[in-house]
């Protein structure tokens, strides 16, 4: 099983921190308007949010694993709900590599695998180095072509 790049934790922590800060700003905006929220509570919420995000990121990194098995791409992930997914190569419609602004700053990249199944539940492997992402994309594409079935849908 392959783990993600350790730097992915920074990405997740950054995302959690951004969320926590936005929440803090919202609280600060509500403060004079609707009800009084002590400054301590506001700062506290932000700090707790960041701490939770930190713990979550560390744990998620520990459990996130994936593997190319003979017939399928296999992934394990999830902190609250632990999910083991198998994506048979024959079902791969197309494969993307993507990276957002924070990912780019951290030198990371994601591989997104699309199937014809439920369109929102596509499979994303984050936290790969750009080289590894491209390599994985190529491998998946080759495996998908190799095992192509003409009646996927």
């Amino acid at each position: 099983m392959e783990s993600l790049h350790p730097r992915i934790r920074l990405l997740w922590i950054a995302q959690a921190a951004i969320l926590a800060i936005i929440l803090g700003i919202v609280l600060a905006a509500i403060d004079p308007w609707l009800l009084e929220i002590p400054t301590v509570a506001q700062v506290g919420v932000v700090i707790v949010g960041i701490a939770l995000g930190l713990a979550y990121a560390v744990r998620l990194y520990q459990v996130w694993q994936f593997e190319l098995q003979p017939d399928a791409l296999y992934l394990e992930r999830g902190v609250i709900t632990f999910v083991e997914t198998a994506v048979p190569f024959v079902r791969v419609q197309h494969v993307d590599t993507q990276f957002g602004p924070i990912e780019r700053a951290l030198g990371l990249s994601s591989v997104v695998v699309y199937t014809a199944g439920s369109r929102n539940a596509d499979v994303r492997i984050p936290g790969l180095t750009p080289d590894r992402a491209r390599e994985l994309q190529d491998t998946l594409r080759d495996l998908a072509v190799e095992s192509e079935a003409d009646d996927a849908v």
């Binding site: 709900t81 997914t85 199937t115």
Partner: peptide, 8 residues
């Protein structure tokens, strides 16, 4: 298409 085992 895909198979997933989920555990909350």
């Amino acid at each position: 298409q895909t198979v997933s085992t989920r555990r909350s």
